[in-house]
């Protein structure tokens, strides 16, 4: 139990996928201009990340290992992720057409979110079991959502700041993300990974 808690704290704060491992930066910079879209994106990504983390574990453990094809993992994980994203897209389209419209191109782009593939591959590298994969994927998603939502609230504020013109927009967003990463360095050493 305590192991799973440590995985959770580790993935949310200490090795945050966005601000410490620098994975999944495209949606982090692309969809963070408004708090509401960021929340929708976080929910969708949380769903996809957790599900794909478990699915790719199952695929690896029960298909690739028995067939002795572990080198096919990258390509098969991409396939698994694509399927999960397609499934999420259908769910979002039916349940919340507005969110579907707001997320637009970014929903299918979860497929290419490197954090999703990163979690699936890291699960194998770290020899995580079924529950550990689930917790790792969920923790990664929570960490992603946390910084995504906080960052979008902050961007709404800095977008109206009287910054020098060359720094306005994405430039200032990246500098802010850098300073946030600096803040997250404070968690270094909290949990030994």
């Amino acid at each position: 139990m305590i192991d799973y808690l440590l995985i959770l704290v580790g993935t949310i704060l200490v090795n945050n996928f966005v601000l410490v491992q620098f994975l999944g930066l495209c949606p982090f910079m692309g969809v963070s201009n408004k708090l509401e879209t960021a929340m929708g994106m976080s929910l969708a990504t949380t769903f996809v990340l957790t599900l794909s983390s478990v699915c790719s574990y199952l695929v690896f453990e029960y298909i690739l290992i028995p067939l002795d094809l572990p080198w096919l993992r990258t390509i098969s994980f991409i396939l698994v992720i694509a399927v999960v994203v397609q499934f999420t897209e259908m769910v979002v389209r039916k349940t919340s057409p507005l969110l579907y419209k707001v997320l637009g191109i970014f929903l299918p782009l979860i497929t290419t979110n490197c954090a999703v593939l990163g979690v699936a591959l890291l699960n194998i590298n770290k020899d995580h079991g079924f529950v550990a994969s689930l917790v790792y994927g969920f923790g990664a998603a929570l960490g992603f959502s946390l910084v995504m939502v906080l960052f979008s609230a902050m961007r709404e504020r800095i977008n109206v700041a009287d910054a020098p013109r060359v720094f306005q927009g994405s430039a200032l967003g990246m500098i802010t993300a850098g300073l946030a990463a600096l803040a997250f360095m404070g968690f270094t050493g909290l949990v030994q990974a």
Binding site: A183, F184, G186, T188, L190
Partner: peptide, 25 residues
């Protein structure tokens, strides 16, 4: 939390930065 379990003995700076990040939210 950072003082006790992290690696920085006086962690006010990091704590302030983290909460600054959360302040608009």
């Amino acid at each position: 939390v950072i003082r006790t379990w992290g690696s920085y003995p006086d962690a006010i700076a990091f704590a302030v930065l983290l909460m600054n990040f959360a302040a608009p939210f």
